[in-house]
Design a protein around this nucleic acid. Structure first.
Length: 604
RNA sequence: GGGGCCGUAGCUCAAUUGGUCCAGAGCGCCGCCCUGUCACGGCGGAGGUUGCGGGUUCGAGCCCCGUCGGCCUCGCCA
């Protein structure tokens, strides 16, 4: 009876000195073969670890002969004895390094062709090749660790919510196209020619319906689909930890989510997260960091110097101010040592995201007083102005001040980008620090300058804060003007960690009149709303409970825990940056028959 | 849709300003030798239409145009 039909007795990661003397059966892949002419050593690998096998030509000539023929990545099963290594032979780099297996019997289960790349941890092969041979790429222990971490994180989260009475309920994958938000992935219907299902961008509406059904605590690890351009941290299909609760206020949801996250960080990394996680108002985040997902591991806050800048004879500052813009700056601690060529290169990069340039000044200290040089220094032409600037910016001698002038939105974008970029380049970001925060009090609506239209900051089902409800003028037929609308804040909240948005949620509208007014504000006609959200509008008629929830990006959580900035690293079978799968060659053409059944014709 | 970077053996990368480099190295691969290796070692060998198509030039891996592909980024992602 060949070895292949025996159960393996141990994994390649578990044998220790205590097992010496035992006969074991191991199975795995040949990681490395070291043929010394007589003795042959094999590192046998499975997902649990690596164990050294020893083949002795004198005691086991048959097994030894077979071992000489082995090649990288062959799959084998062996039987042998666990023996202690001599003191000089102990390998401290391996958990199993105190022992090795004297192999008596070997069964080659299958042979491997020479792999297109080596199965080693510190691999730098181009990603497309790795994705094409993903099953080989996933044999690497770094990748295995990430996939295993993903499993464990998911498990911790499920367990937390299960323990607190949440129900895991599945929602449809074939569903209805929604007009708002991202582009839908469409699935043609065979039984109803000319109509399409859409893959869900999120289970948003369904989880609300579940609240109306009375399943007051819901959670699902839900796959979501959005047909938009990808990014380093975005895939066309991704996974959300989707949560919804009835009779909930923002705090109800946030308290559960932060407790669950603290548990994940504790169990995965042994990190304690002080609770509650600090709350930061949206306006404050935008003012201090220029974005709604601040990285709080370093300071470098944005400072407003509009008043001061307006007094300078400098058109680059004056002109934007005259058009209602602002001038703000950040201070790069010790940035005075940056060379002209570095600064020039940085300027080019800022231009790349739309800035006209990068006004700057270096803070000096000469003859016992503060001074400026380089860049816009000459416009601060009195000691008083220099002092005022350094005071306003919080700059010290040796620092670099970077300015941005323009519309508030642009200034925030440029300075926020510079803040993050420089902190990273100059090593100002502490390692192993986890700075969670909640961003709260989001505006309910934003103004799209290009489309000249009001849009929902979160989504059209987000409830305004009770204090701001009056601004919606529910007692009148017409909604209020733009300025009032933009002052309405929402019961919305985002969880942010180290500059990543982990997720966002809100308390939903549960009143039909409020929902109708929101649609009216957004320019969604009654007929349109009925067509697109009829089932939701219908449900609102039957006494929905106040409810709300959140969706967390599972992929990003796993990225942060496993220390990668590439979302493809934490997905077993990801697509590339063009949403193509090099492994399966999806998407692909389909047969004319398939198209005919669907009544679909391809246009050139 | 915009911007940037990249494409040379199976893999990672070299190759002065375009000029004996009829494209090199390391790893991997193949063969031989080697009984304590663990990045084993030694000797030898195979392997390339420089992504593809044009152009400039006496001469192109290098310059120009186009095209295909990859990665990043802005827009976009309620």
């Amino acid at each position: 009876m060949s070895l292949a039909y025996h159960q393996r007795s141990h994994t390649c990661g578990e044998l220790r000195a205590a097992h010496v003397g035992q006969t074991v059966v191991l199975a795995g892949w040949v990681a490395v073969r070291r043929d010394l002419g007589g003795m042959v050593f094999i590192d046998l690998r499975d997902r649990y670890g690596v164990t050294q096998l020893k083949f002795n030509p004198e005691t086991d000539p048959k097994a030894h002969a077979a071992a000489r023929d082995l090649r990288s990545e062959d799959c084998i099963c062996i039987r042998g004895n666990v023996v202690a290594r001599g003191a000089a032979q102990i390998n401290p780099k391996l958990p199993t390094g105190e022992i090795e297996i004297e192999v008596h019997e070997i069964d080659v289960l299958s042979r491997a062709e020479t792999p297109p790349f080596e199965i080693v941890d510190d691999l730098t092969t181009n990603e497309d090749l790795r994705l094409k041979h993903r099953m080989l790429d996933l044999r690497r222990s770094t990748n295995q660790r990430r996939i295993i971490a993903r499993h464990r994180i998911t498990k911790v989260i499920r367990d937390y919510f299960d323990r607190h009475g949440f129900l895991d309920i599945e929602t449809p994958i074939l569903t209805k196209s929604t007009p708002e938000g991202a582009r839908d992935y469409l699935v043609p219907s065979r039984l109803h020619h000319g109509t399409f299902y859409a893959l869900p961008q999120s289970p948003q509406l369904f989880k609300q319906l579940l609240m109306m059904a009375g399943f007051d605590k819901y959670m699902q690890i839900a796959r979501c689909f959005r047909d938009e351009d990808t990014r380093g941290d975005r895939q066309p299909e991704f996974t959300q930890v989707d949560i919804e609760m009835a009779f909930a206020q923002p705090e109800t949801v946030m308290t559960h989510v932060e407790a669950a996250m603290a548990e994940v960080w504790k169990r995965m990394l042994g990190v304690d997260t002080p609770l509650p996680i600090p709350r930061m108002r949206y306006d404050d985040a935008m003012r201090d960091y220029g974005c709604d997902k601040p990285d709080l591991r370093f300071d470098m806050k944005i400072r407003d110097v509009s008043a001061l800048a307006g007094r300078l004879d400098f058109n680059v500052f004056r002109e934007p101010l005259s058009r209602g813009g602002c001038v703000r700056c950040i201070v790069v601690p010790g940035g005075g040592d940056m060379t002209d060529s570095q600064l020039k290169a940085l300027t080019e990069e800022v231009k790349g995201i739309g800035a006209g340039g990068m006004p700057l000044a270096k803070v000096t200290h000469e003859g016992g007083k503060l001074g400026l040089n380089k860049g816009v220094a000459k416009f601060f032409n009195t000691d008083a102005l220099v002092g005022e600037l350094c005071e306003a910016a919080g700059a010290k001698p040796g620092d670099l001040i970077l300015f941005a002038a323009g519309s508030e939105a642009n200034v925030c974008k440029w300075l926020s980008w510079l803040r993050i970029e420089l902190a990273h380049r100059r090593g100002l970001v502490p390692e192993n620090e986890w700075r969670f925060c909640w961003i709260v009090d989001f505006p309910a609506f934003g103004w799209d300058e290009e489309a000249r239209a009001i849009f929902p900051m979160h989504h059209p089902f987000t409830s305004p804060r009770d204090e701001d409800l009056h601004l919606m003028r529910l007692d009148q037929d017409e909604p209020p003007g733009r300025d009032d609308l933009l002052n309405i804040r929402a019961k919305a909240y985002d969880l942010v960690l180290n500059g990543y948005e982990l997720g966002g949620g809100s308390i939903r509208i549960h009143r039909g009149d409020v929902q109708a007014r929101v649609f009216q504000i957004l320019g969604i006609s009654e007929a349109e709303a009925k067509l697109k959200f009829e089932f939701l509008m219908e449900a609102l008629k039957y006494a929905p409970p106040p409810h709300g929830g959140i969706a967390l990006g599972l992929d990003r959580i796993v990225m942060l825990i496993t220390g990668t900035d590439n979302i493809r690293d934490v997905i077993a079978f990801p697509k590339n940056a063009k949403a193509f799968c090099p492994l399966t060659n999806a998407p692909s053409e389909v047969s004319p028959e398939q198209l005919r059944e669907l009544a679909i014709q391809i246009r050139e």
